[in-house]
């Protein structure tokens, strides 16, 4: 076991190349490529990846860093915010993977939807909206997907307590024989 530091700006030629090509800082997390994109350029970056034959957007999710204890290690020029949206891309021609991360502030939780380039993000963006309350601009049907539509709050936020929400079943009617 090593006390690996999450983010080291790598010197490997591949990283330099990706950094040069997309113009965003690249870091390595346990050997996996991560590209840090400002929130405003989220869709533009995805467009570039799409043009560059990244075949599939396999996964999109978010992390709430509200009570994350250690110092966040992000490359220079990226300010840590409460939320982070994470998208994973894969290309089929050489099996490479790339993770795209963007910081989303708590007071304005919104980011562009990648639906235009990768329609496969539909359900997972809805899930992220449902669980974190991050709005995806340009998503055609941004509604709750797992929780009931009238649900208040976003369960995977760190300030959403666990186990204090009463189960939403109706109490048996007075006088019913159950």
């Amino acid at each position: 076991m090593t006390d690996t530091v999450d983010t080291e700006v790598a010197e490997a030629p591949a990283a330099v190349e990706i950094e040069k090509r997309y113009g965003h800082p690249v870091t390595y997390s346990r050997g996996q490529q991560v590209i840090h994109v400002p929130r405003e350029q989220w869709r533009a970056a995805a467009e570039e990846l799409f043009e560059d034959n990244w075949t599939m957007l396999v996964d999109i999710t978010a992390v709430d860093f509200l009570n994350f204890k250690p110092a966040r290690s992000l490359p220079d020029g990226i300010t840590p915010e409460r939320f982070e949206v994470v998208a994973s891309f894969v290309r089929f021609d050489n099996g490479a993977r790339l993770r795209m991360r963007a910081q989303v502030p708590a007071d304005d939780p919104r980011i562009d939807s990648l639906y235009a380039q990768y329609p496969g993000c539909d359900y997972q963006e809805r899930e992220t909206y449902d669980m974190f309350g991050i709005e995806f601009d340009g998503h055609p049907d941004l509604s709750r997907i797992l929780m009931p539509e009238e649900w208040v709050g976003h369960p995977l936020r760190k300030d959403f307590a666990q186990g204090v929400i009463p189960v939403q079943f109706k109490a048996p009617q007075e006088g019913s024989n159950r």
């Binding site: 076991m1 690996t4 346990r30 996996q32 204890k69 994973s88």
Partner: peptide, 25 residues
Amino acid sequence: PEGEVYVAVESPRGELGCYLVSDGS
């Protein structure tokens, strides 16, 4: 140790992935 990874395997239904973020705890 602190860090984040995404690992994927081929399940009978397709790409099953796990994204883990650790804060050292």
